[in-house]
Structure formats: C-alpha cells, structure tokens
Simulated assay, not measured.
Amino acid sequence: MAIEAMKKTAIDNGIKKIAMPQIGAGLDRLEWSKNRGIIQKVFEDTDIEILVCKV
C-alpha cells in the first residue's frame, strides 16, 4: 500500500512531518473519512505529524 511505503520512507529518513492533500478524495471520488481513517491507522504507532491541506 502506498501509505505504508510513505510511512517507511518517512521513518527511514527521519521525517517527522508530512503535508498532503486529501488523497483519493478528488477525481478518484473516494470518501475522505475512510481515507483519513486508513492514514491514521497506518501512522498511529509513530510520532509523525500529518498535515492535510484542503484545496
């Protein structure tokens, strides 16, 4: 999964903050609330801060 790869990359490179758009919720028409839950679950065991930028 791409989110897990992002987590691994962040951990491997000492990244403590990630900014991203509401991924999957634009042209893909996925429900942001579900996507948000997946992101929270993947990163819950880290101290990485996720900032979601809304367009």
Rank of each mutant, 00 (worst) to 15 (best):
A2E: 04
A10E: 03
D12N: 15
I18M: 06
I11L: 14
V55A: 10
I18K: 07
M20V: 06
T46M: 05
M1P: 09
E49W: 05
E4W: 01
D45Q: 11
Q40K: 14
E44R: 15
P21Y: 09
I11T: 14
K7E: 14
E44P: 00
K16N: 06
Q22H: 11
M20E: 03
A25I: 08
S33Q: 11
V52I: 14
D47R: 09
E4K: 10
I15Y: 05
K34Q: 10
W32C: 01
E4N: 15
S33V: 14
K17I: 12
G37C: 02
D28A: 13
P21H: 06
E31S: 06
I15M: 02
Q40R: 15
K8H: 12
G24H: 00
K7Y: 03
A5G: 04
I18C: 11
I39N: 01
I23H: 01
M1F: 05
L51V: 12
K8R: 12
C53E: 07
K41Q: 11
I39A: 00
G24I: 00
I11S: 07
W32V: 01
K7I: 08
G24N: 00
I11N: 02
C53V: 11
C53K: 12
D47S: 12
S33A: 12
P21R: 02
Q22I: 13
A5M: 05
A5I: 15
M20K: 07
M20R: 08
A25S: 13
K7L: 15
I39M: 03
K54M: 07
V42D: 01
